[in-house]
Design a protein around this nucleic acid. Structure first.
Lengths: 146, 146
DNA sequence: TTGAATGCAAATAATTTGCACGGAT
DNA sequence: ATCCGTGCAAATTATTTGCATTCAA
């Protein structure tokens, strides 16, 4: 069940929704969370899909460039990826500085969205940047580690 | 001119303000910007200070754990570091998705600070996290790449 | 049949580690 | 004398690349 929307995006990019690519997307749908390349590869193995690690890397990159996935970064020395949910205007991360656990936070306050939009406009004017997206990270101690 | 405050911190951590450590801090004072380990190493060479790359890595890590430096991350596959001082209250980054150029934005709007503090409180309550700091990244096209 | 996609192994790049030495306390 | 900090080189980890093969339009 690879979504029609995705098929369309593949078509727009002149890329094919190959078995490996679909399998990778399935993994993300099932996990509903951020994963590293190695983790994706692991999940695929568990599902008896044989996809080489190089292909995983190549496709995570492709899917990010196509805007289906988004790269996120928790400072643990490897890239993580997550599904871009179109419904979600933004996306925050809470990272535990002790155990490294990272949880996603995507509830949305109107006020918050409005504020960040305003801030983006301001920055565009001030720095000549054309801003496309943003990410917010909060660092601290999770419940267990306090 | 390694600041008294830093000496104190070294002392609190039972660590010594060695020549390499001071030289590294000097580099950051002069640059007033984020640097990768390799860049720090390069600057040290230019200043005729001979510090091995392993020592640079070890000390960037140490200085981060001591709270003098902060790790920042631009998704280019390597860690960057910056002085915590320069960005006390908060610190934003504008990253060009085309050329990778990353500029720092540390001007501060009262409104902005207040807003993020409020948001932190909210998240602490909702997720049981004890938040210590945050980082905000904006992604888009810089002036040249538009 | 032709270019796109993949697997595998080798190559790179960034960072970490083991170990012996030198210097400060 | 002891232990911290360091340099060097080797090891590890994450990611990328070259190339021959396979696959799909």
């Amino acid at each position: 069940m690879v979504k029609r929307k995705w098929k369309e995006i593949f078509h727009n990019f002149d890329k094919r929704p190959t078995p490996s690519r679909c399998a990778i997307l399935e993994v993300f749908e099932e996990e509903k969370s951020h994963l590293s390349a190695e983790e994706v590869h692991e999940r695929l193995k568990q599902k008896r899909k044989k996809v080489g690690i190089a292909t995983v890397y190549r496709n995570l990159d492709l899917l990010s460039r196509m805007g289906i996935l988004r790269r996120v970064n928790f400072g643990d020395g490897r890239e993580h990826y997550e599904l871009v949910q179109t419904s979600e205007t933004h996306h925050h991360h809470l990272v535990c500085v002790n155990c490294g656990k990272a949880i996603d936070y995507s509830e949305l306050m109107d006020e918050e969205r409005e504020f960040l939009n305003r801030l983006e406009k301001e920055l565009e004017k001030k720095h000549g940047f054309q801003i496309q997206s943003h990410q917010v990270y909060f660092y601290g101690l999770c419940e267990k580690c306090q």
